[in-house]
Design a protein around this nucleic acid. Sequence first.
DNA 1: CCCGCTCAGGAACAAAAATCACAGAGGCAA
DNA 2: TTGCCTCTGTGATTTTTGTTCCTGAGCGGG
Lengths: 216, 216
Amino acid sequence: MQPVTTSQFTEFEPRLIEEIEKSGILKKMGAGEELMRPGMYVRSIPIILSGSLKIMRQDDGGNETFLYFLTKGDTCAMSLTCCSANRPSTVRAVAEEPTELIMVPVEKLDQWMTMYPSWKIFVFQAYQRRFDDMLEAVDSLAFRRMDERIWRLLKKKAALQEKRFVYSTHQELADELSTSREVVTRLLKKLEGMGKIKTHRNRIEIIEVRGETVRK
Amino acid sequence: MQPVTTSQFTEFEPRLIEEIEKSGILKKMGAGEELMRPGMYVRSIPIILSGSLKIMRQDDGGNETFLYFLTKGDTCAMSLTCCSANRPSTVRAVAEEPTELIMVPVEKLDQWMTMYPSWKIFVFQAYQRRFDDMLEAVDSLAFRRMDERIWRLLKKKAALQEKRFVYSTHQELADELSTSREVVTRLLKKLEGMGKIKTHRNRIEIIEVRGETVRK
DNA sequence: CCCGCTCAGGAACAAAAATCACAGAGGCAA
DNA sequence: TTGCCTCTGTGATTTTTGTTCCTGAGCGGG
């Protein structure tokens, strides 16, 4: 429909890329914009072209916790499962930065699975990667203390955009780590004391990664 | 090969059941026996006939945490991903009770996917269920305090075997919740004080579930 | 420039969980 | 019975995290 740059996905057959471009709808999202929330029914699955989506889990009481990021070439495994089971989403997806994606209607999923080997591989890889991501989230929650969780989250965010500045408020980080703003502030100060970061208003500077200084 | 009772899986085509019985290997495990550990390469995927497997995540320092149970009719999504990506396992699987399973060689996975619609559904449902389980594990870790986590684990274990006794030591529960034995002992005492359980040596009795008393 | 708002910092205290240290209970086997 | 071993209970202490409350910095709009 739109002139979509799916051609970057070299692992897809040309025919499949054609199909994606034909039936997919291009969507542009601004930073912080919400693509999906718990309870929402999903009728199409996103493939990310650029930028990144932050996937969060929420409980009934408004608390939430970060699960993982989706970046270029990723698709949302949750959407896949929800779509095919026709159930509402149980997670929230928010654009972490300006993000472009193609929304592919559910109906195509099954068709393409049998028609295009590369699509089958794509879908299975999506499941695989998300399992890995979930396990990492579990590791973080089960085995690490808050200071390390913050530090890792900051590094992940910085790596995502290949910048040394992370544009998050303490409150946002607190939400992502399911803790309180005060705790984040405290531990950021500690990290600052250790020389790993420098805090600014609305932005945190990553100084040191494993002894190396981040450039850019 | 062996006379396997796969016939209980009515959702499979008769032809598929035949195939499973032909190429699958029946395996019986005693309670506590280990099917898989991190680092192990898997060349066949298990389908559980009876009993249950406990899936645990371990970190490098010997700590571990419970992820979910697999029961009759389930298969291990981790095995699926590990097999097809030819990577070692990143989780540990232990028989929670005496358990019977069929081990199906990896090679069949792909074949059956295209040949038998019911197998494709089976595999996708496996992914779906395990995603749900992982999300529940995350909820537990992120949003609940240790006393509630213990209580829920006990109820889950009791439900698994439809008994009101849970045959676990405090140390085992501590490992499953990635905490220390002392904490478990203390909180069990608290639950006992609340009349929800009664503790015995090597076994815990579930007294009350949501106001109802457990029979059996 | 002042007002109002969000964001960050921090003190003081409370609660939850982890750690240390030890004692006793129960069961098994010599 | 005695000794040994595992499992359980508990007190004391520390660490980590959560909570409450208040202060001031920074920033944009009138």
